[in-house]
Amino acid sequence: MLFKNFKHLFASIALFIFCAVNAQQTKNWNGKKCAVVLTYDDALNIHLDKVIPMLDKYNLKGTFYLIGSSPNVVNRIDDWRKAAKKGHELGNHTFNHPCDGSMTGREWVPAEADLSKYTVSRAVNEIKATNALLYAIDGKKERTFAFPCGDMKIGDTYFYDLVKDDFAGARGVNSTYVKLQDVNLNNITAFGQSDTTAAQMIRQIEEAEKQGSFIVFLFHGVGGEHPLNVSEEEHTKLLEYLKKREKEIWVATMVDVAKYIREKQN
């Protein structure tokens, strides 16, 4: 009888340890099951006029990748400064948003913004100039970078390698789920959204959670102003879902999540 009692005791202890370890493993995103990053590209007016007020309503923070030469940056510096003071990240999306115009289907790329015609030094200088502008706006030295069009090379050169020490990480465009220890901070995965419903985006979050991963949403237009657009209604539904699940899902800026990943990988 005593032996059986010990067997039950040991079995209970083993089960407790297993559950505790498993719970810890499934809550490895700042103590939560999953991390979600909301990113918005190209410094659109609608980001300031609609998206940031929505995020503020639910006390959620987003990352806004600004193009240094955009009139929506130059003419609205005070608004971007206010956004940064509220905890939103102003990320670097280069000065001129250069994309590789030599690729198929890139006829729309203007000559002055054709990455295939850039020198590496020009790309580096424009990125650094944009960082200087962003620092003048928000006074912050830590931020992340986003590759315009997901293009990472000039010829055979990965130009970001020459500026990576200036950033906490760089967001790419590959849509895959990655474990924390396997995240490449020089090409962070992201899921682009266009005509996507809240239900579809929620399923992507649930899949990330199931895999013990995280998800970065890549938005452009929200209710208009860009061909790649998600309706304001569906975007609001997504924010409502994230707010309801705030005890289980960590919603943070790209810079904060990148810094967390780097810390855990070291």
Rank of each mutant, 00 (worst) to 15 (best):
E107L: 03
K33A: 14
N92A: 07
F64A: 11
F95E: 11
V73Q: 08
D166R: 10
K61M: 13
C34D: 02
H93P: 04
G150H: 10
E112T: 12
I127R: 02
P53K: 09
A113G: 03
L133G: 02
H47P: 02
V51W: 05
V163Q: 03
Y58C: 01
V73T: 09
K128E: 14
K57V: 09
A136V: 00
Y135R: 12
S102C: 00
S102V: 00
H97W: 05
V51T: 08
D165G: 06
V73I: 12
I67L: 11
Y65A: 08
H93R: 09
A111Q: 13
A35R: 01
F145V: 10
M54Y: 11
T63K: 11
A123Q: 14
K33C: 09
A111M: 11
I127N: 04
A111D: 15
Y118T: 08
L90N: 01
A83R: 11
L48A: 08
D114C: 10
D156N: 14
N72V: 02
D100R: 13
P98K: 00
H93S: 02
V51F: 06
Y160A: 03
I154V: 06
W29R: 02
D56K: 14
D41R: 08
G155S: 05
V163G: 05
G155K: 02
N30F: 12
G62E: 09
K82Q: 11
G68Y: 08
P98Q: 07
K164H: 08
L134C: 06
E142T: 14
G31Y: 05
A132N: 13
R106A: 11
D42I: 02
N125R: 12
G105I: 03
K61S: 05
N125W: 00
Y65G: 03
I77F: 06
V36K: 00
N125G: 04
E142Q: 13
V120H: 09
V124N: 08
N125P: 01
S121L: 14
V73L: 14
K140S: 13
N59I: 12
C34S: 06
H47W: 07
R143M: 14
K141M: 12
F167Q: 01
S70N: 12
V37Y: 04
Y58F: 15
L55M: 10
Y158V: 13
D166A: 10
S116P: 10
L66Y: 04
R76S: 07
I127E: 00
T130E: 10
N59M: 11
A35L: 02
S116A: 15
K141A: 13
A83Y: 12
L66Q: 08
P98N: 10
C34L: 07
I137A: 03
G87W: 02
N131T: 07
S121D: 15
M152T: 13
C34T: 12
P71W: 02
K32R: 15
T63N: 07
G155Y: 04
N59W: 00
Y58A: 09
S102G: 06
L90Q: 04
P53V: 06
I46N: 15
K85Y: 01
C149M: 10
T119P: 09
D79Y: 05
K32T: 04
G101W: 01
F147C: 09
